[in-house]
Design a protein around this nucleic acid. Structure first.
Lengths: 234, 234
DNA sequence: GAACCCAAAAGTGTCGACAGTTTTTATGTA
DNA sequence: TACATAAAAACTGTCGACACTTTTGGGTTC
């Protein structure tokens, strides 16, 4: 059982300017639990129970829930409490439409704004992915982690802070939740890898227009793959 | 001075299922105050003072501030408190880039998904705008309110809930804040009106591709207008 | 047995108080 | 006067308690 009053995490005063607040940690913990399905999608969140389980007051818990709501991982109704968001085929499609628009723009901006070093690093990352695919027929790894890594770097490369926040802080967590809980492994990793290559070439050429086009096509392909995969389930 | 304990807003029990929570109202109030510049951009938010002024406990105020942070209207740092976001030329450009991507997609989807009635209503709205421009040379009205109305309906017409939330609940408030505080009146209202017409025609023809193209061009024009206007100031 | 009503239990909304941190002010020294 | 230092004031983070709302579980009536 967690102890109750630990405002002073007293160890290591030298290298500890983080001063991360209790609510912050709680938020991270809960977000992970929700994304990975540990707290099931659609389930009700009981404030007293969760607060007790994490050894924390309801006030702090409430702030954390508020942030989860801002990221659309939970939905709250006045006097009725909060529920973990329920995943649906329709919502997933909506997310892909948004990604197509937003990441397309990100790719366009990245082609303009990424530094040469960043581009080189991205090339190296992609090479590593290629080897992984050869080596271990690494379908799972590539689709789940590598793909997100690649997209993540493109978004960062856009240098548009608002855009980065929108995608990396908000949307991607929801997307990861779908990946975890719908088990979205794919037989498409080889093709996705190739598409990443085309896109990167456009960025190397600093061709924003082309980069946007390719990114949008890449995400559309990915969406179609998900559609066909899920239509079996639903 | 507001009284302290008014949990029972006892009047009108019959037509009052709203049960809007105190935090909700506070949030609305503060959001308006920030957007309209009543609480100046960049200023620090003192929790004790604001709580006292609104006759509310710090806990409730804190939740409201949390939501304002989610909408990027304030920024919080641990142990240092919250400040109203500082507006900048760069951030405004970033917002226009995001709008171009997101509203472009919204227009595409609206061309597919708007009902015939919604389209008719939108045509009527546009007619009204046209008359207003003739009549009173209504530059101010059109740019500030009418333009947003039009865009708002297109976004609604996309029928993409995530997209609607992203734009209408989050981004538009920040945009309104810039309009208020940068005083963005424009001599471009006639052209903007025409562009709205072209866009609407594409929607009537159910041509999503064209609608996206026109919307993106419309927003780019609007951005260039803002750029040239602000470059005088900065 | 189903529908209704009412008290009890559980849950959410709001508050005031305390703990720890940052900022300000007061004080002493070079 | 300028600067370092320490006390104090102000502020944020967290908690437990109370008020109001919703849900639950019996009991009553038809």
């Amino acid at each position: 059982m967690a102890n109750k009053n630990m405002q002073n995490h007293s160890a290591s005063k030298t290298t500890d300017p983080v001063s991360i607040t209790l609510t912050d940690r709680l938020f991270d913990t809960l977000q992970r639990a929700i994304v990975e399905g540990e707290i099931p999608s659609g389930s009700k969140i009981s404030e007293p129970e969760l607060a007790r389980r994490h050894g924390v007051s309801r006030g702090s818990l409430r702030e954390a829930i508020g942030r989860l709501e801002a990221r659309k991982l939970v939905k709250r109704k006045p006097n009725l409490g909060a529920r973990v968001v329920t995943l649906s085929y329709e919502q997933l499609i909506e997310i892909f439409q948004i990604r197509e628009a937003l990441e397309g723009m990100a790719a366009r901006l990245a082609a303009q704004n990424m530094s040469d070093q960043e581009i080189e690093a991205l090339q190296a990352l992609l090479e590593a992915h290629g080897e992984q695919i050869e080596e271990q027929h690494g379908l799972a790894y590539f689709q789940k982690q590598g793909d997100l890594d690649f997209h993540y770097r493109i978004v960062q490369g856009s240098k548009n802070r608002q855009l980065i926040g929108l995608l990396c802080d908000d949307l991607y967590h929801l997307l990861r939740m779908y990946r975890y809980q719908f088990g979205m492994r794919s037989k498409r990793s080889r093709q996705a890898y190739d598409e990443h290559h085309y896109l990167l070439n456009a960025i190397v050429a600093r061709d924003g227009e082309m980069a946007e086009l390719l990114m949008r096509q890449h995400i559309r392909s990915s969406r179609r793959n998900v559609e066909s995969m899920l239509l079996e389930t639903f």
